[in-house]
């Protein structure tokens, strides 16, 4: 367990520092790249939790698609190299309050629902059981049985967003 704790500490530290740099750096592209570091650290945390599927999807979707699209948009519009002066605005206090509020809510939810519960140790568990419990198949089963309705709702929401984006982007 000690190795996992050290790895967690390193990853958490990297994620936090990179997250701070996302909002303090003076270049939009650098901010997007620090965001990649944050997301990659979170992906590594999923590996640490033996959730390989979630980790792979985290890399695939967040790093491979979303931030790439951020960068693509930035490059098409304002690909400035070097320091930009107009990145700051006067909403930093509101942002700080929102951030603290979110932290509070998440902490409350975590403590309230899990309390002092501990993750079951992996020492005696065979690999077959582990795959059955946490593998890709288990995730798929959960999505298409227990969480079918939320899944469908999100699908329709994404479709609506897609259609909306096309409607907004078309000029005629």
């Amino acid at each position: 367990m000690i190795a996992q704790n050290i790895a967690f500490a390193i990853l958490a530290l990297v994620a936090t520092l990179a997250a701070l740099r996302v909002v303090t750096t003076r270049n939009v592209v650098h901010a997007a790249l620090y965001l990649v570091v944050v997301l990659a650290s979170v992906g590594a945390l999923y590996v640490l939790l033996a959730a390989e599927f979630v980790a792979a999807v985290q890399i695939l979707i967040y790093i491979g698609a979303i931030v790439v699209l951020f960068l693509f948009g930035i490059m098409l519009t304002r690909a400035t190299i070097g320091v930009e002066s107009d990145l700051d605005n006067d909403q930093r206090w509101i942002a700080a309050i929102t951030g603290l509020f979110l932290l509070g809510v998440l902490t409350f939810v975590l403590v309230e629902s899990f309390g002092d519960d501990q993750l079951p140790g992996l020492a005696g568990v065979s690999r077959e059981e582990l795959t059955a419990q946490r593998g890709t198949g288990a995730v798929g089963d959960a999505i298409f049985s227990t969480y079918l309705v939320p899944f469908e709702v999100i699908s329709v929401l994404l479709l609506a967003a897609l259609v909306g984006a096309i409607v907004l982007a078309r000029r005629d």
Binding site: A55, A56, I59, L60, G64
Partner: peptide
């Protein structure tokens, strides 16, 4: 031989 091999392939090609 990661259990998510094919996803790993797609993740790498997106990186």
């Amino acid at each position: 031989d990661p259990p998510v091999g094919v996803l790993f392939l797609l993740a790498m090609s997106s990186i």
